[in-house]
């Protein structure tokens, strides 16, 4: 980390890495929200065995899933683009969870298309969709947990073992994330469907929400307990005053989500579930900034050459608004409720 007393604040090498970290954070956030609800549908699949319900669940996201998944490529690719040194450490360190996640996403992704072609012999692709989603989500949680608990680095390279991530905390985060994505998926269905499907989704969301809140509380307590640097960040004066709004807001948003589900609102549950995720991710950033690979590699340590970061951030500045614009356009095009036996015509 540069010494704030002596650093040239206007030098690109100083401000580009945090800017890129913000872009990368935005990409990961969009991935978590957009593919999160998509994966959530797969997690909820086993709870809705009826074929026509499953058709509607898949139809509700069919036009979007390719684009949603692309944020994962920007997440992984962006890490390579902007922080190749972190990419070169995180990927080997979390090798097995990452490979397993990718293979699970293969099953989940092809199921979107194969399921329709295979009908009436589509059961195996229902299975692939559900378990692909569950395993991919669990592994994403394990990856996050493994990163939070820290990665062993020596001489700029990963120096730990292949199973360093296999400890209770990453496993717990994996399980929590499965419930988290299920909440996103269920609230998406509340918004995008009607009748029995929406009704069932409402109850599924109400069941998932307490687990998600409990999980977030667990992570919020465990990380400062196990990692002094995080405790110091949150629980010293005046930080505690500045940061208190984050947990307070989280509790409020959780309440809004709960009440809106009970009072039969359509859109508010999904919006508040997304807000929960945004607050959770904000908390993680507060805990770990400026580290990209906790506990030792900062965004400046990991950054690509300033010339490279500059060249690529220009592309981001031009293209990301365009991408967000046409993504919004496609969601708007396929707005409204999806009904049984209808799909998009």
């Amino acid at each position: 980390m540069p010494d704030l007393a002596t650093v040239d604040m206007y030098a690109p090498a100083f401000w580009l890495p945090p800017l890129w970290a913000f872009v990368l954070g935005a990409a990961v956030t969009l991935y978590v929200v957009l593919d999160g609800f998509t994966l959530g549908l797969g997690i909820l699949f086993p709870l809705s065995p009826e074929e026509e319900r499953r058709d509607v669940m898949m139809n509700s996201v069919a036009p979007f899933w390719d684009g949603n998944g692309t944020w994962l490529v920007l997440g992984g690719g962006g890490l390579f683009v902007a922080f190749p040194k972190a990419y070169a450490i995180i990927m080997p360190a979390l090798y097995l969870p990452i490979i397993t996640m990718l293979l699970a996403l293969v099953f989940r992704g092809v199921a979107f298309e194969f399921r329709w072609v295979a009908k009436p012999h589509h059961r195996k692709w229902d299975f692939a969709f559900a378990w692909g989603s569950i395993v991919a989500t669990f592994m994403q949680g394990v990856i996050l947990g493994g990163l939070l608990q820290g990665v062993a680095i020596k001489g700029g390279a990963f120096s730990g073992g292949p199973l360093d991530w296999l400890t209770p905390f990453p496993i717990a985060v994996g399980i929590i994330l499965v419930f988290g994505y299920a909440l996103l998926g269920a609230t998406w269905l509340v918004m995008k469907t009607e009748g029995e499907i929406a009704e069932a989704a409402r109850y599924q969301a109400l069941a998932a929400l307490p687990v998600v809140i409990g999980g977030m509380a667990l992570v919020s307590l465990w990380t400062p307990y196990a990692l002094p640097r995080i405790a110091e960040r949150w629980f010293t004066w005046p930080n505690i005053a500045y940061l208190a709004p984050v947990p307070v807001l989280t509790a409020l948003v959780a309440l809004v989500c709960w009440r809106s589900l009970q009072s039969r609102r359509d859109t508010l549950p999904f919006v508040s579930a997304i807000s929960l995720f945004l607050l959770g991710l904000t908390g993680l950033v507060i805990s770990n900034a400026p580290y990209l690979v906790p506990p030792s590699m900062t965004v400046w340590d990991a950054a690509a050459d300033a010339n490279s970061q500059m060249f690529s951030i220009i592309g981001v500045a031009i293209m990301l608004p365009v991408v967000l614009g046409y993504t919004a356009f496609v969601y708007w095009t396929f707005r409204g409720k999806v009904r049984i036996g209808e799909g998009y015509h």
Binding site: T70, V73, L74, G77, G78, F80, V81, A82, P84, A304, S308, F311, S312, G315, V316, M319, L320, V323
Partner: peptide, 10 residues
């Protein structure tokens, strides 16, 4: 990296 980044973005 940037070349692949541009591939994703464009």
């Amino acid at each position: 990296g940037p070349l692949l980044g541009y591939e994703v973005l464009t």
